[in-house]
């Protein structure tokens, strides 16, 4: 059974509906799936989450969560979803324990009843349970917010950018917690601007400017990346980048760590690159063929707004040549 179904959702803002936040989006999330929505700021992630959690009405389209329609049966949905907004939104002047108690009470349950669900997370913040929620560190706040979103044993969990502004260690811990929750059969939708987190999801949707660019498993997305990819390192990196972009066999070149990643237009480009490297052998330190990771795929998907293909890439190239 599908936990979430979304059909042709359109959402606009502004009096004249001039701002298109979600442009005809459709996808499904299966029960028990950890579904990631990746996209830059302003992609429409939060609007989508607010529609899914019945806080916002879409202009058109049909959405069901856990089998219930978000417009007609919003009351039923509110009882069975957990939502963690991107902004910390627990009561800062209540203590950790009071916050948890408060949200348990609102959902007509108690901490005791569902303690086994939040136990693994709660023990980490339990030493601070007397502390005011507003005085917690960023990572602790996220853990508490997750506890509060879980306390009524939701069947679907919506997490809007839970790891934004959280340190690397806490981020890792947070994702481990999500894996644990997945084991309990909870469907989780999580949005994030960090591409490296995509690998941790069962399925990833890439969003940009209100459009869904690609929905696949992380492996599927990587496998779809067919163009040869090289990493090149030089003593004059900026000059190299500009020269690479000016050649006709390169589809895209961008900085990637200490290397430049060079995407070839097709397989014959590799030979051309070898020649290029030889002519610039005095500056180029290292070059190697690399396996694309998910970040390369997203960069390739995001660059041309239209679905990838020769056409889109040409457009992009033209822009660079200008």
């Amino acid at each position: 059974m599908e936990a979430v179904t979304i059909e042709n959702i359109i959402k606009t803002y502004g009096k004249k509906k001039e701002v298109l936040a979600l442009n005809d989006i459709s996808f499904n999330v299966a029960q028990g799936e950890l579904f990631g929505i990746i996209g830059p700021d302003g992609a429409g992630k939060t609007s989508l989450f607010r529609i899914l959690t019945t806080l916002l009405l879409a202009d058109s389209g049909k959405v069901t969560v856990d089998g219930f329609d978000v417009v007609k049966n919003y009351k039923a949905i509110r009882k069975r979803v957990g939502y963690m907004p991107g902004k910390f939104s627990l009561y800062p002047d209540l203590s950790v324990e009071e916050n948890l108690n408060f949200f348990a009470t609102i959902f007509n349950t108690s901490i005791k009843e569902n303690y086994n669900l939040v136990k693994d997370i709660y023990v980490q913040i339990a030493p601070f349970k007397e502390r005011k929620a507003g005085k917690l560190s960023g990572g602790m706040k996220q853990k508490l917010a997750l506890c509060c979103a879980l306390i009524h044993r939701p069947s679907v969990l919506f997490l809007d950018e839970p790891t934004t502004g959280v340190d690397a260690v806490s981020r890792k811990e947070f994702w481990e917690m999500l894996q644990g929750l997945k084991q309990l059969g909870i469907t989780i939708l999580v949005s994030t601007p960090y591409m490296d987190e995509a690998n941790l999801c069962d399925k990833v949707a890439l969003m940009q400017n209100g459009n869904m660019l690609s929905i696949n498993t992380p492996e599927g997305i990587v496998n779809n990346f067919s163009n040869p990819l090289w990493a090149v390192k030089s003593s004059k990196m900026l000059q190299l980048l500009n020269e690479l972009k000016a050649t006709d066999f390169v589809a895209d070149a961008y900085p990637f760590g200490e290397y430049h990643h060079v995407v070839m237009k097709d397989i014959s480009g590799e030979g051309s690159l070898q020649q290029f490297i030889q002519t610039h052998s005095n500056t180029i330190i290292e070059s190697k063929i690399v396996k694309p990771d998910i970040e390369d795929c997203f960069i390739a998907l995001m660059k041309p707004l239209s679905p990838k293909g020769e056409n889109g890439e040409d457009k992009h190239k033209m822009k660079v040549n200008e």
């Binding site: 939502y83 907004p85 939104s89 627990l90 007509n108």
Partner: peptide
């Protein structure tokens, strides 16, 4: 302003 209303609004209260 502090956003707590978001969290309240998704509850069945």
């Amino acid at each position: 302003e502090i956003g707590t209303i978001e969290q309240i609004n998704v509850t069945p209260i």
